[in-house]
Design a protein around this nucleic acid. Structure first.
Lengths: 153, 153
DNA sequence: ATAATACTTAAAGTACACTTTAAGTCAACA
DNA sequence: TGTTGACTTAAAGTGTACTTTAAGTATTAT
């Protein structure tokens, strides 16, 4: 299959200018042209853009993604570099998951705390100095939700 | 307790220039000065910087963080806005956790796939056209690791 | 006394990842 | 036939979040 820039742009929800930019910096390569100079993308480009999406969500910078494709290009020579890059990335992601999850819990705590305050304000009651910010049910449910999402395999 | 800019800089692993910048844009407020004009930070600033750290890890932009503190300043008036911001953020985080985790799995898959290739190359054996990229043990272990990290409560 | 250090300011500079602009080409439709 | 719309290029511009520079002041160490 072949695709126009508009089709790829829509498929990946990315601006046409971004696709031209990716090509300019060498993130997309071998983009064919029609007789009148218009870009023609192939399934290989679809595959590469999926990979780019994945790597971006994984927190990789464009230059890291470029490195990956560079390694992939001469696989035999660079397989160790490639695996080192991927392994490092998976480690970083694990660390970031843990840190983000801590922040997530802090935000739930704040929500819970202000929930108590709001309730008290609405009931025009005296506030306890420190509202009991830890609502176990709320946390438990949130943890279960995230576990389920992480598990959907 | 009071702290110099160097102490705060070290405590939060943030450049002194960044602390000045945060003050300039109003993210840090009420920073006192010594007689000769040097900044003096208090425990309130330590608390605020912890919150900033948390919000940044939660993926909030500086202007969102500014909004939060603005809401917090006049709590009674803005508690709904504040809770809306926090609730929206927790939702976004959950979505991002799910997306990141998908990418994480893709990266493990790639690692596994190239692991097979590397092994085959080293053994100078014929490669199967598509190596069986799914090593259940590897995935299971990774999932358990992340679950543990997410659970450390 | 001199030099190193730790700070101060305002303003300019940087890195990243695009995005916009301006001018032009080409094919299809009214 | 003309104009609309989808593309093309090269170059300049944008937003975010800092970071660096340059010039100056004040305290501490040799």
């Amino acid at each position: 299959m072949t695709y126009t820039i508009a089709q790829i742009s829509e498929k990946f929800d990315v601006a046409a200018s971004t696709l031209r930019y990716y090509e300019e910096i060498g993130l997309l390569t071998n983009v064919e042209r029609t007789d009148n100079g218009r870009r023609v993308y192939s399934d290989a480009h679809v595959g590469r853009l999926s990979a780019i999406n994945c790597f971006k969500k994984a927190g990789m910078s464009i230059s890291e993604i470029q490195d990956f494709f560079e390694y992939e290009k001469n696989e035999e020579k660079s397989i160790d570099d490639m695996m080192r890059l991927l392994r490092r990335r998976s480690e970083i992601m694990l660390e970031e998951f843990a840190e983000s999850y801590e922040s997530y819990e802090h935000i739930l705590k704040k929500l819970d705390y202000y929930g108590h305050i709001e309730k008290a304000v609405k009931q025009k009651k005296q506030l306890p100095k420190w509202a009991n910010y830890r609502n176990k049910d709320y946390h438990q449910q949130a943890l279960e939700t995230i576990m389920q999402r992480l598990k959907k395999d």
